[in-house]
């Protein structure tokens, strides 16, 4: 096991293994997202209160879940990179940032598009919406900080510290609908014993969520591979990859 971890930490080995995982995760994500979208848009019945507008849930909720999940991965990878100086952890952390930012953006915009017909407003400064907006700024801050420092190892350390400090926002987002009186509805799915959502509406949501997870695996590895090549551009294995003898 330790030997496996040690080998995985070697850049060339990681590059090859990641390259083999990408197509599997990518095609799996595509299939699941297509199935989930078809099921959610066509098969699932309209909501008795919200009509067809509730179908936004199949983009909004998985995107919001991913925005939190990716942040935790980014901060954890950043912490591992910070403590043990593992280059690959630094790379996973920084590769996660733009994907997480785009899911956060998607959650905010689709939430807005859902809020307009249902609440009558595009935006309210309530706890859930505001804390999710702060999450977007945290992602953008991590990316900007990383980009601003020339030395990439130093940049990773600075970005990791910001990411770790920002973790405090994650429970705030999650519990915001319980701690404060928000316009945003409370949790309906994560009440594990008995979700208050009909199964024929829930299934496409779960499929979509797994699809988004696989999508993240595929895209974070794609980004990590490129980032790795950039950092190792002067090493022998990259030279040979660019122009094999």
């Amino acid at each position: 096991m330790m030997r496996f971890i040690h080998r995985l930490a070697s850049p060339k080995y990681f590059y090859d293994v990641a390259g083999r995982i990408v197509p599997w995760a990518g095609w799996g994500a595509l299939i699941l997202i297509l199935v989930g979208a078809y099921w959610g848009l066509v098969e699932a019945p309209a909501d008795y209160q919200q009509g067809d507008s509730f179908r936004i849930i199949y983009v909004h909720v998985p995107a919001a879940w991913m925005s939190l999940f990716i942040y935790v991965v980014m901060a954890a990878a950043g912490a591992i990179g910070l403590v043990w100086r593992i280059k690959l952890a630094e790379i996973i952390a920084i590769a996660s940032a733009p994907i997480g930012a785009s899911f956060t953006f998607l959650a905010l915009v689709t939430g807005s598009l859902w809020g307009k017909p249902m609440w009558g407003t595009w935006w309210v400064w309530d706890a859930r919406l505001t804390s999710e907006l702060i999450l977007l700024f945290l992602y953008l801050g991590v990316m900007a900080l990383y980009g601003a420092v020339e030395d990439k190892r130093m940049a990773s350390r600075a970005a990791a510290i910001l990411a770790i400090v920002g973790v405090v926002n994650i429970p705030i987002i999650h519990y915001s609908v319980e701690w404060w009186n928000t316009l945003h509805q409370g949790p309906t799915v994560t009440k594990l014993d008995k979700p208050s959502i009909a199964p024929e509406m829930l299934w496409p949501l779960l499929i979509m969520a797994v699809g988004f997870q696989l999508y993240y695996v595929a895209t974070v590895l794609m980004r990590a591979r490129v980032e790795l090549l950039e950092r190792e551009r002067n090493s022998r294995w990259v030279q040979e990859l660019v122009q094999p003898r």
Binding site: G26, I33, A37, L41, A46, G51, D52, S53, R55, I56, V59, H60, A63, P98, I99, S102, F103, F105, L106, V109, T110, L113, W114, K116, P117, Y215, A218, T219, M222, R223, R225, V226
Partner: peptide, 27 residues
């Protein structure tokens, strides 16, 4: 979409754009 076409289809279109962009950019 029961009268919600603009909201529903804009959401899905944006999702599509975001999903494609994150694949194209590393390529």
């Amino acid at each position: 979409m029961g009268g919600y076409a603009a909201y529903v289809w804009t959401s899905y279109a944006l999702a599509l754009v975001v999903l494609i962009a994150n694949v194209v950019q590393p390529l």
